[in-house]
Design a protein around this nucleic acid. Structure first.
Lengths: 243, 243
DNA sequence: ATCTAGCATTGACGCAAATCAACATAAATG
DNA sequence: CATTTATGTTGATTTGCGTCAATGCTAGAT
C-alpha cells in the first residue's frame, strides 16, 4: 500500500490535453500554452487502493487527475476516519500540503488512476509570469474553501436523506460536466466511504438509498444508481426552494 | 444592518503594524516592506452586528482583521444557518469570494472591529513581484482548507463534548498566540453561534459547558470561561492519545 | 433603582440515527 | 467450480441530541 508508485518520465503536454479546460486557465495563445506545459513534470499511475500521497509526507507537488477517482481522508489518533472529499478527472489534489510543506491527509485511488505531477515550485514560478495562471490557482483554492463550506452546512444542519441527495446531485453534476450521464452513476466508493464523507454510518446510507428506491426516486443496484426523479431529489436536498 | 459601513481613507502601513507577523510574510528588508504597504488601500471600521461583506456581494478585497472578532456564516434557502468560522485579529477574511468574484458567505462583526482593506488586484500584482508574498497567500488559503478539513472531522465523527473541547482548545491556542491568556476566555459569541459552528443546538452547548463545570474542568460564568484542567480537556478532545 | 430584552441554564420527553445482529449478494481466489 | 471475503441490505433496539418549555441571569434603558 505504501510503497512509492511508479514515476513515469513521460513528458506530457497540457496543450494537447482534452481536460485542459478543467485543470488549466483558458485564454492563452499557443505560444504561452507551450510554456504552460512546463507546470507538468511527469505523469504517475496509481493503482486502485494505493496512496497518491499520505499524511505526513513531504509536499512537493500538486496533482491534476487525468483518469480515475480518488478520496482524501484524515484520521484521528483513535482511528476514526473522515473522508474529506472525492476527486475526479480534471480536479486538483494536494492543496492541503502547501501550508506546512507536509500533507495533512491521505489521498487514495478508488480505481486505477493517472495523474499529472505538477511541482509546486513550477506552479509558483509560472504564476508570477502568467497572471491568468496565478488567477486560476487562486480560484482553485478558493473553490475548495467554498466547497468545504458547503460540506459544513451539510454536516451541521442536514438530515441523512438531505445529505445523500446533496451528495448524489453534486456527483452527477460533476460527472455531467465531464460528458457523462446526468442520470446514471456507477459509484466508485463504498457505502462506508459515502457515510464517512456525509457524517453517517454505512447502514444509514444504505437505508436512505433503499428509501429513495422505494419512493421511485432512484433505481439502485449496489454501486449502480439511476436517478429516476431528479426534481424529487432536489426537493429533498432543499425543501424550502420548492414549497 | 445592511447599510455600507464607513470607508475610512486612512493610509496605514503594514511595516509599522504589530500584527504584521500574523497577516504578512516575514523576511522582507525595509525597502521591500515599503512596497508591501501598498497591499492595504484603506482601513474600515465595522460596528458590532454589522456586515463586513454579505453573500452575493461583489468580491474586490480581502480583509485583514486589525481589531475585533468576526463570524462567517452561510444560510440555506430555508433559513438554516451554518457558522463556518470565527476570525480574530491578524486573520484574513474573504477568501470565499475569489472563485466566483462574489462572496458566498456573510461576515459579521461580533464586536466593534477594524479591518485593513486589501484590494485583491493589489495582492495579485505584488504577489507576482514578491515570491514571499505569493507563498504567504498560498499558505493562507491552504491553511483555511486544512482548518475546514478539521471541522469536517469534528462534525462528522465527534460527540458534543469532544466538539466543545476542540473548539475551546483551538480558541485559547489562537488567543495565546496573540499574547492573551491560555486559560481565560471571554467568549465573543453566543451559545447559539457556538452550536451552529459545531453542528449542535444551543441547549446542547450549554449542557456541555455545565458538565465540564461540574467535573471541575472549566469555570463558566456566561461568556467568561476559565480552563481549570487543560489536560482533561485535551483528553476529551482526543481520548486515544491519552489512554 | 426598576424594568425589559436578550441570552443562558435546566428539566422532561421524543426522535433520528447509531448500534447490534442476521443475512444476502457480489467479487476475488484457489 | 466451490469457497472465501468484502460489501450491502434489513430488522430490532438503544441512545445522544433535539425539541419544547419553564426559569434564571445580566446588561442596558428609563
Amino acid at each position: 500500500m505504501n510503497q512509492p508508485t511508479i514515476q513515469e518520465a513521460i513528458k506530457v503536454a497540457c496543450s494537447n490535453c482534452n481536460l485542459r479546460e478543467l485543470c488549466m486557465p483558458v485564454g492563452f495563445d499557443s505560444e504561452d500554452m507551450q510554456k504552460l506545459d512546463e507546470v507538468v513534470a511527469t505523469r504517475r499511475r496509481v493503482k486502485q487502493g494505493d496512496l497518491l500521497f499520505a499524511n505526513g509526507e513531504a509536499f512537493t507537488s500538486l496533482f491534476a487527475i487525468r483518469t480515475g477517482f480518488f478520496k482524501t481522508c484524515i484520521s484521528a489518533a483513535d482511528g476514526r476516519e473522515q473522508v474529506t472529499g472525492f476527486q475526479m478527472a480534471g480536479e486538483i489534489i494536494g492543496l492541503d500540503g502547501i501550508v506546512s510543506d507536509f500533507h495533512s491527509c491521505n489521498a487514495i485511488a478508488l480505481e486505477d488512476a493517472e495523474v499529472c505531477v505538477m511541482p509546486f515550485a513550477n506552479i509558483e514560478d509560472l504564476s508570477r509570469e502568467f497572471p491568468l495562471l496565478q488567477r486560476h490557482m487562486h480560484k482553485v483554492m478558493s473553490r475548495e474553501i467554498v466547497r468545504e463550506n458547503g460540506v459544513m452546512m451539510l454536516l451541521g444542519n442536514m438530515r441523512a436523506e438531505e445529505r445523500l441527495a446533496a451528495f448524489l446531485l453534486n456527483l452527477v453534476q460533476r460527472l455531467h460536466a465531464r460528458g457523462l450521464s446526468q442520470t446514471e452513476i456507477v459509484l466508485r466508493m463504498t457505502r462506508e466511504e459515502i457515510g464517512s464523507y456525509l457524517g453517517l454510518k454505512l447502514e444509514t446510507v444504505s437505508r436512505a438509498f433503499s428509501k429513495f428506491s422505494d419512493e421511485g426516486i432512484l433505481e439502485v443496484k449496489q454501486r449502480y444508481v439511476r436517478i429516476i426523479d431528479p426534481e424529487a431529489l432536489k426537493k429533498i436536498f432543499n425543501p424550502q426552494t420548492y414549497c
